[in-house]
Structure formats: structure tokens, C-alpha cells
Write a protein that binds this DNA or RNA. Structure first.
Lengths: 116, 116
DNA sequence: TTGACAATTGAACAGTTGTTCAATTATAAT
DNA sequence: ATTATAATTGAACAACTGTTCAATTGTCAA
């Protein structure tokens, strides 16, 4: 079932077996780390931060972050796939806005952490 | 001062200039994204999750996660440098424990997010 | 329809990341 | 002292990531 990779025996089997049932399922685990992976990039944090203030189009975000439209668009796609932002076409422009109320809360908690 | 890299003009200068002063400092920005980068790995999430239940030594963590001691030790170092865990030597073993009460809160918020 | 602009896309590139492997340090037991 | 065990370390490797560049799509104005 589970292919072995560990190279040692347990030292406190009781602790290991007490903790084991509390561990998250693989599925949940990947979702969690994928979420943090998306947040773990300076450009994407800036984009989320900006969109928390106002919905904005790609060109304006590029000017604000001093990056190319292409680079911004690539990162917005990552945020879109992660369902953290949503896009709305208005004429020639595409306006992005936050799509998830949890993001603000998590950013605030993380801010408390790094600021202490 | 700021070297230009953007390839376009602002479309809504008013919005850009309204949002600009709300943007975080570079310094804070990097701390934030570095923090999320540390959380953005399945192995490290598992380690934090386990240590939330009980302090554990490297060998037991290796058995629990079914990984080599070396791989676990490398990741514990990342968590140690990020000050999320602390190490205490007891005889032949090194016991790790959580070092930051914010981590649990952030994990819980993130969990709410991915579970909705 | 033509030209200009906004945004997206895919390939390519360098830089980074996580695990493995082998060697090493440090402690405890004989 | 010697041996065994726990943990750390650094180099090497493949896999992944973010930006750039060039080409493309789609929309508006003339």
C-alpha cells in the first residue's frame, strides 16, 4: 500500500502512533500547500494587495508594479486558476478583482506574524 | 531611483495613484512572500501539523512522514531558519516543537479557505 | 477594412527548490 | 577506545518557477 522510503526505526512509537491519525489526508495536504505556494510570490502578493484596494485592469497593474503587461498577465492567470481573483472584460480592458474573502484575513494574520 | 520596466501607459491614472500609497514597502513584501514560501511545501506543512500535536524528534518525524532522516532534517532547517520551529537536544535525539502561535491560526484560516 | 491598443499565450531561459547520496559530527553504551 | 545510533551537512541532480520575448487574439476608432 504505502511504499517504504524511510531509513530508520521509530524511537517513540507511542508518539508516532498518537500523532498519525491526526495527520491530514494527502488530498487536503496538497490543496493547503498549493494555496500557500500561490501566495508565496512577491508579485502575486502585490497584485492581491492592490486588488484589495480597487479593481484594476492589467495595464494599470503593470504600471503600478512597474512590470510588463505580459508578466502581470501570467501571474494573474495563476491567481485566476487558484480562484483568488476574477476577470471581467469591459471594452478593450480586462478588470480584475478579488474573488475570495479569506485572502484578506490570511494576509492580515500573516502580517501580524512577520511584524512581531 | 526606480528603474523602469513597464511597457505601457496607465489607463486610469487616478486609480493607480490612489492605490500606490497603500502598497506595502518592499521590505515587508519580501517578508510576507518568504513566509508563504516556507508554508508552500507539502513536507513542511506536514511537519508543522505533526508538531502541533506533539514535540517530536527527527527520526520519529521521518517514520511518520515516511521519508529519510536527511530529507526531514533539511526541511526542519528551513522551518528553523524561518523561526517557525525550535530544536532542543535531549541525549542522542533532537526534539523539535512549534515556535510560533500564529502558525496554527494561519493554518486554520487557510484550511477554511481550501475546504469551502 | 485598416490601424492602434489591451491582453493573452507559448517557448525559452536562468534561477531556485526538494530529495538523494555519501560523508561527517556528536552522543551514548559496551 | 570502540561501536552504534541520531542528526546534520554539502554536493549533485532533476523538477519547477518567473520573466522575457515574439507572436497572436480580440476590441475599438477612424
Amino acid at each position: 500500500m504505502e511504499n517504504k522510503r524511510t531509513d530508520c526505526e521509530a524511537i517513540n512509537i507511542d508518539i508516532v502512533e498518537k500523532v498519525r491519525p491526526k495527520m491530514p489526508e494527502m488530498n487536503l495536504l496538497y490543496e493547503l500547500s498549493d494555496f500557500f505556494k500561490v501566495m508565496g510570490d512577491g508579485t502575486r502578493i502585490q497584485l492581491l494587495w492592490a486588488l484589495e484596494e480597487s479593481e484594476m485592469c492589467v495595464g494599470d497593474l503593470a504600471v503600478l508594479l512597474n512590470m510588463t503587461k505580459s508578466a502581470v498577465s501570467h501571474q494573474l492567470k495563476v491567481l485566476r486558476v487558484a480562484k483568488l481573483v476574477r476577470a471581467e472584460k469591459k471594452g478593450k480592458n480586462v478588470y480584475y478583482s478579488l474573488n475570495d474573502h479569506h485572502v484578506k484575513l490570511i494576509l492580515e494574520k500573516a502580517l501580524e506574524h512577520v511584524c512581531e
